[in-house]
């Protein structure tokens, strides 16, 4: 799977990128790289293809290799296609202590996938991740910008149903977020 040739940022995204680049001193525009990669991932199918990363490099006037190097370091950047909804389920101590393993197993069973896999309809990806700063509302998962907390198998089922019904891609940069804190 690859993006169409000659991909471009939308005018709105370009304006946002220009704004971000203006936040750093002259000559330090590489600082915008991580924020811009977030925009790029959200704009181009939820992952960073080599082509998308080349586009980011050209906008920031840096080498493509500088972009690959950074994109591969951070766990929120996907270097291969993912489902519309990526479930980042926390598995670290506090969540583990309140049943995270059961939640991961439940989602896996409902969707017929293991952590790291995507459903065949391209709707869901399941990831087991490290502490998301929601330990007091464990167990929890993040999907796009939203945190879903104090999870039970029933809540997970409802969540899967509602995301499936909506059918849309969820991105970390989404403006509509839900959090139950």
């Amino acid at each position: 799977m690859s993006n169409p040739v000659n991909i471009k940022f939308s005018d709105a995204s370009l304006a946002l990128i220009q704004n971000i680049m203006s936040r750093y001193p002259e000559g330090k525009q590489k600082s915008a790289l991580i924020p811009v990669l977030h925009i790029a991932q959200a704009d181009f199918d939820g992952w960073l293809s080599p082509q998308t990363m080349d586009l980011v490099a050209s906008v920031l006037k840096i080498q493509s290799v500088e972009v690959y190097e950074v994109a591969s370091f951070y766990s929120m950047f996907h270097l291969a296609p993912v489902g519309n909804c990526v479930f980042d389920v926390c598995r670290t101590s506090s969540c583990w202590s309140r049943g995270a393993d059961n939640i991961i197993a439940h989602i896996g069973k409902r969707l017929g996938i293991k952590p790291g896999e995507t459903t065949s309809d391209g709707m869901f990806t399941l990831k087991a991740v490290e502490c998301l700063g929601s330990c007091g509302t464990a167990p929890m998962l993040q999907c796009g910008a939203s945190f879903h907390e104090n999870l039970t198998p029933e809540k997970v089922d409802a969540l899967i149903d509602s995301y499936r019904a909506a059918g849309t891609r969820r991105s970390y940069t989404d403006m509509d977020y839900k959090n139950t804190l």
Partner: peptide
């Protein structure tokens, strides 16, 4: 950055 497992106070304050 608040990523030390077990820590979520900064999030609460900022939110």
């Amino acid at each position: 950055d608040e990523s030390e497992p077990g820590t979520f106070k900064d999030r609460y304050l900022m939110e």
